[in-house]
């Protein structure tokens, strides 16, 4: 059960970088929101690894707050995606670059 702490942090870093790549590469806004979810999840995993390295519960408490934040962010973000799809009939964010107020 003695997993080194560096390897847990390394897993979180790899997942974060994959999410960042997805966020930068895609122009489809649903993919971008999913990549943001991956990045938030990786940050929470880093908190939990650091918390369990010292046997403290602080990391898990922080993960619960990240979870609440992700839930609020996703609900607002998906409502915005629905509004954008109604307005432009597309989920491509290049279409939204011409919006004027």
């Amino acid at each position: 059960m003695n997993v080194p702490m560096e390897q847990g942090i390394l897993l979180a870093a790899i997942l974060f970088c994959l999410g960042l790549t997805g966020l930068l590469v895609h122009r489809n806004i649903i993919y971008m929101l999913m990549s943001v979810e991956v990045m938030l999840n990786a940050a929470g995993l880093a908190f939990i690894v650091a918390g369990s390295a010292w046997g403290e519960a602080d990391g898990q408490v922080m993960f619960i707050f990240i979870l609440a934040m992700a839930a609020a962010e996703v609900s607002v973000g998906l409502a915005l995606i629905i509004q954008m799809f109604k307005k432009f009939r597309s989920v491509d964010i290049n279409k939204a670059s011409t919006m004027n107020g």
Binding site: M5, S52, G55
Partner: peptide, 18 residues
């Protein structure tokens, strides 16, 4: 990040379950 993490001495995680 890999360089920063591997440059330090290893730290084994605790045994106990929170």
């Amino acid at each position: 990040m890999v360089y920063v993490l591997t440059a330090q001495p290893g730290y084994a995680m605790g045994q106990e379950v929170v």
